[in-house]
Design a protein around this nucleic acid. Structure first.
Lengths: 222, 222
DNA sequence: TAGATAAGTTACCAAGCGGTCACTTTTGCA
DNA sequence: TGCAAAAGTGACCGCTTGGTAACTTATCTA
């Protein structure tokens, strides 16, 4: 019956533990992004063409797997360069934030990331809080301080007040909402994401009344 | 054993169907907002001090109940006045949008509404899409057309282009993100919501550079 | 190449869950 | 006051689901 040429050909390929674990995490990211964390391990296993017991050979529990998914999705995407970018006084604050948000959107605005982020916010394992702490301390606060200078205010060293922070949370929200519309609300975005981000930052600085409507190519690099 | 005074006192109170249904929906709204739609009917019933079969006497299925929750949460909160408010040329566009978003936030920014809205976005029953259609056609598009006039552009009748719409989606996002931070990400908002909304709208019109940082009392009524 | 070890499978458990049904209790009304 | 209809209960069904264990198959190495 078997048509192989004498050498016992394995019907099934085994993967090395490490490789399989990686694959499980990768698949799980996409899977949980689609189904939410209620998605069943059997379904996930089926996607990999494997029995669901395999998952439990490599992960202690479903929760342990979810933990790994978090790590993979959150921590791996933060670019430490961004922290110095915001402080780089060779550029205007507007240039810095434009570049930051364009790069940020590039790395973070995808189906998996956005949905898992929002899902876990609803579940509140405390992970979104931790992530947003990073955003605040590395981006929002520094930007608020830089704005003082940009505006030519006298040098001060006191930490930014609530209103100064709120301002930049507002920008962050406007940008992030682009991703929410696309990946959570499933609204068709007729403009490409980069252009949307550029426009959002531009409008943040200039205001609506001070600025003509730009084409989607929106240029604010200078 | 029974200490009542002779008249057969009912051990259990029955509710009228209509009243019970209302109570179930009310409780379900809060319950699903907390637990997501995976929350069990037994748990929900326990909160009402009732067996879970009661739910199935009044609702065909869990899905039917969820449907009712949607209705209750979404449709009941839209104020038709808003549609004419946006068009009211006795006010500046800035005044109109400030008032709209302040009222909108007042009605819509609560734990139940925001979480159910986002949850159902992730599940995509198509309901968020329908809701956002209302926002677009009643607020975003009219506002975009009014802005042309505000800017003193020559009268035109063509529908607003993508970029004109994007601009106002940006404002909407910045405002809504306030609610997301508070009820989804569970971030402590140190500023009151109305002030945050006012500041967001003000910044939308003036831009950051053109405007001093305001105190949380942020006044932009004139 | 034998056999130890790692990877994968099948069958199963026990708890959870949506939903139903026969029954009891309450209540409105003739 | 008595009784039929409405409201509520508890036990049960069957499917799902996370998790386990005994077994089979592949792979690495002495």
């Amino acid at each position: 019956m078997t048509s192989d040429t004498g050498t016992k050909a394995p019907r099934r390929k085994n993967m090395r533990a490490e490789e399989r674990e990686k694959l499980i995490v990768t698949e799980a990211v996409r899977f949980f992004a689609e189904s939410g964390f209620e998605g069943q391990t059997r379904e996930l296993a089926k996607r990999m063409g494997v029995s669901h017991a395999v998952i439990y050979r490599h992960f202690e529990s479903k929760d342990a797997l979810i933990e790994r998914v978090y790590e993979h999705v959150y921590l791996k995407r933060w670019k430490p360069d961004w922290e110095s970018l915001v402080l780089d006084r060779n550029l205007t604050l507007r240039q810095r934030l434009t570049q930051f948000y364009v790069e940020y959107a590039e790395r973070v605005f995808d189906y998996d990331w956005v949905r898992i982020f929002v899902s876990s916010g609803l579940k509140s394992y405390g992970l979104t809080e931790r992530y947003l702490d990073i955003v605040r301390s590395k981006i929002i606060e520094p930007a608020a301080l830089e704005l003082r200078r940009e505006r030519g205010e006298p040098e001060r060293t006191d930490p930014p007040g609530v209103d100064e922070l709120e301002l930049f949370w507002g920008l962050h929200g406007a940008v992030f909402y682009i991703a929410i519309r696309k990946f959570v609300y499933n609204m068709p975005l007729e403009i490409d994401v980069e252009a949307a981000v550029r426009n959002t930052v531009a409008n943040f600085f200039d205001g609506t009344l001070g600025r003509p409507i730009e084409s989607s190519l929106g240029d604010c690099s200078k």
